[in-house]
């Protein structure tokens, strides 16, 4: 197994770059990070829409949320793959396709996290902000969201972990992320399948496990500051 790592570690980490497309673990991380960052604004908008007092905003977004959550991510990727070219007019590469699918899919899941975060605040906060005369969006911007986003941090880290795992599905459309690279290595080496896929699993495990420990630490830290403040 050691010579396997010795021969292929660079390919595993960054794909064929610079002689080919950027790939491997590097691509997985870049994709997951951009996916989460780009879906955040969408998640915020959808989340706020989900709690809107106006049915005309709330219902379509709620329908969209149920639609996306009832569909496998693979399906969303295929829709993006087959229909982005016709919408944009030219051929879209795998990274853009995957990113689009991730943003839509994660945006919807983030909407639920945002919604939970906002609803978790005491009702009096919004009432009070409105009583002072602040408008709905002003109240959201200065009072509600700053508090809600802080309490949402552990959930956001967990969503990041999910997104990392979701990038693996880019395999289907030939995206050169780390699972795809592992399979490429496997086809080249042929005799060490178990080792190759073991290393793949180990990589994901180390990455996601450390992040989940971080999320756990974050949650504890948040609870600690809250109880410190309350005790004062």
């Amino acid at each position: 197994m050691l010579d396997l790592i010795h021969d292929y570690w660079l390919y595993f980490l960054i794909g064929q770059y610079p002689n080919g497309p950027f790939g491997g673990l590097g691509l997985t991380l870049v994709l997951a990070t951009s996916g989460l960052l780009l879906s955040l604004p969408l998640g915020l908008i959808f989340g706020i829409a989900r709690i809107s007092p106006f049915r005309i905003i709330r219902w379509p977004i709620t329908a969209l949320v149920y639609l996306v959550r009832g569909t496998p991510l693979l399906m969303v990727i295929f829709w993006a793959y087959f229909f982005l070219p016709s919408i944009t007019g030219h051929k879209t590469d795998q990274i853009t396709t995957m990113l689009t699918a991730l943003v839509i899919f994660d945006g919807v899941y983030l909407a639920e996290i945002v919604r939970a975060g906002i609803l978790g605040l005491p009702k009096g906060q919004l009432e009070c902000a409105r009583s002072l005369g602040l408008g709905y969006f002003e109240a959201m911007r200065f009072i509600i969201l700053p508090q809600a986003l802080r309490s949402m941090l552990p959930s956001l880290v967990n969503q990041f972990i999910s997104t990392i795992k979701e990038t693996s599905l880019g395999y289907i459309i030939g995206l050169t992320e780390v699972s795809f690279i592992a399979s490429q290595i496997n086809t080249q080496v042929l005799t060490k399948s178990t080792q190759v896929y073991f290393i793949l699993g180990l990589t994901y495990f180390v990455l996601c496990f450390s992040l989940s420990r971080f999320a756990y630490w974050l949650e504890k830290a948040l609870q600690r500051t809250r109880s410190q403040k309350a005790a004062a």
């Binding site: 009432e127 009583s131 005369g133």
Partner: peptide, 27 residues
């Protein structure tokens, strides 16, 4: 309209992420 009426709540409802002065200055 609401900005011309002062309302004091049973649960105080101070904004916890702002300090005392910022709470008063905001509106």
């Amino acid at each position: 309209f609401r900005s011309h009426i002062g309302f004091v709540f049973q649960q105080f409802n101070l904004f916890p992420h702002l300090n005392v002065l910022e709470n008063c200055i905001l509106a």
